[in-house]
């Protein structure tokens, strides 16, 4: 698989393979398939690895800011900018990379407005519920600890898994379910521990997904 034949053979050659031997064909097929898969991939492994590190840093920062609180109050003001910066950079990078990968592609791969709307409604609803819980006087350990660290992962993970199952994208569906499981496991780690479990759990899920995508691209 190391020699790539000239691929600019004239179209006017009558369509004959000429001296295009099977070994060259196999090499070209292998190379073209891998290149195309890489170019069409909206979540390339390198982006997922960067995201994994970002998640670890963001959630780790929050955990460091709350681990010494007895009783638990909320993440400190110093930790919030780290989380917001990560969230914005992640969103911008994800949208830019996905747009580039899916440029000119129509059909199943294309993001659908209904799906985007569902996810926006889910996120807005999650923060509305958080505001309502805070207003109702629920303990800070839940409102500013367990709830924001775990419930968004469980709800959005399950919602995204449903959307991906409808698309028959089982790899993405599995990754989304893994995110929901991380949220569920973290919920039992207490308000401070939940941030650490989520950070490590998402780091592992993202690295696993990156490895699965890289393996598929080379298969």
């Amino acid at each position: 698989m190391n020699h790539t034949p000239d691929t600019t053979t004239s179209a006017g050659n009558g369509g004959n393979g000429g001296n295009f031997d099977p070994q060259q064909a196999a090499a070209l097929l292998d190379q073209t398939t891998q290149q195309a898969r890489r170019k069409f991939e909206p979540y390339p492994p390198w982006l997922l690895v960067i995201r994994a590190v970002g998640v670890l840093v963001a959630f780790g920062t929050v955990w460091l800011s709350v681990r010494g609180q007895h009783p638990y109050k909320h993440p400190t003001a110093a930790a919030i900018p780290v989380v917001i910066t990560f969230g914005v950079l992640n969103l911008v990078a994800t949208v830019a990379v996905a747009r580039r990968a899916t440029a000119g592609v129509s059909g199943r791969t294309e993001p659908r407005w209904a799906e985007i709307t569902v996810m926006v409604v889910v996120w807005v609803g999650l923060f509305a519920v958080m505001g309502a819980l805070a207003g109702a006087g629920v303990s800070p350990a839940f409102v500013y600890g367990i709830y924001p660290a775990t419930v968004p992962l469980m709800v959005t993970g399950l919602a995204w898994a449903g959307i991906m199952a409808a698309r028959a994208d089982w790899r993405a569906c599995g990754a989304a379910l893994a995110v929901a499981v991380v949220g569920a496991v973290a919920a039992s780690a207490g308000p401070a521990g939940a941030w650490a479990v989520v950070g490590v759990g998402l780091f592992a899920v993202l690295l696993g997904t990156a490895a699965a995508i890289a393996w598929r691209q080379r298969a």
Binding site: L29, T32, A36, F40, V105, S106, G107, R108, D169
Partner: peptide
């Protein structure tokens, strides 16, 4: 090979 890398039913 390029078109086959897309999911079934997608167009380019």
């Amino acid at each position: 090979a390029t078109l086959a890398a897309l999911p079934d039913g997608d167009t380019l």
